[in-house]
Each structure stands twice: as structure tokens, then as C-alpha cells.
Amino acid sequence: MHIYVTDHNGKEHELEALEGWRVMEVIRDWGLPIKAECGGACACATCHVFVDPDWQDKLHAASDEEEDMLDMVPDVKDNSRLSCQILMSEELDGLKVSLAPSAKPDAEVA
């Protein structure tokens, strides 16, 4: 199965994904720039992605914990999700997401 990830420069990458992997792990494993500083613990909000509107409804809803962490995202939108909270399964074959500015490894700090 595959996912399609648009990077910060607008380039789309087709990445092979494995069942049960977190989308964040797929992105990180293929070497695309994603900060993901807590390593998938839903504790830092730096694996933030925007989900393609066609795919939004196919994902399980964000948990309360994920919603809470999305409060820590300065560039949140309606289609914002934390990619460490999306587990790959057959139904998500073809999922399209784009990397949010706040997930850049050198994201803006004050």
C-alpha cells in the first residue's frame, strides 16, 4: 500500500507504507523532513499534517488527546491531524497528506 505526501515545497512523494505503521513513521522512514520530536507519543504536535479533503472522512476521528495536542499547533486548520495518530490499514491505501509548516525540523521558534 502507498501514501502520497506533499512536502513543504509542494512536491508530492509516493511512499510505500506498511500495515500498522503510523503515518508519521512512514514519512520519517522515507526520509522526508518531519520533526516528530516526541517520537509518536501524542505529546508534542510536531508531526502535524493537513489531510486531503477527500480523505478526511475516511480517517477515524481525532481522539480527545489528539484534539488537545492540536491546540499546540500554531497553524491549525479544519483538516489538521497529527500523523503519529493515523495508523496505516488497507482502507487508507492511497491516503494523501501534506506536511504542515509547524512540522518542519527547523520550524519557527521565537
Binding site: 520530536e37 500554531p74 509548516p101 509547524s102 520550524a107 519557527e108 521558534v109 521565537a110
Partner: peptide, 18 residues
């Protein structure tokens, strides 16, 4: 991972007021 710093919102020109 380095030093913890506040996240800066992506608002144009915000640095000029910090």
C-alpha cells in the same frame, strides 16, 4: 534535541513585535 523554545505562530511580521 537542543533547547526548548516557544513555538512562533505563522503570522506575518510577528518577529518585529517580539
Amino acid at each position: 534535541g537542543g533547547s526548548f523554545q516557544p513555538k512562533r505562530p505563522p503570522v506575518p511580521n510577528i518577529e518585529a513585535f517580539e
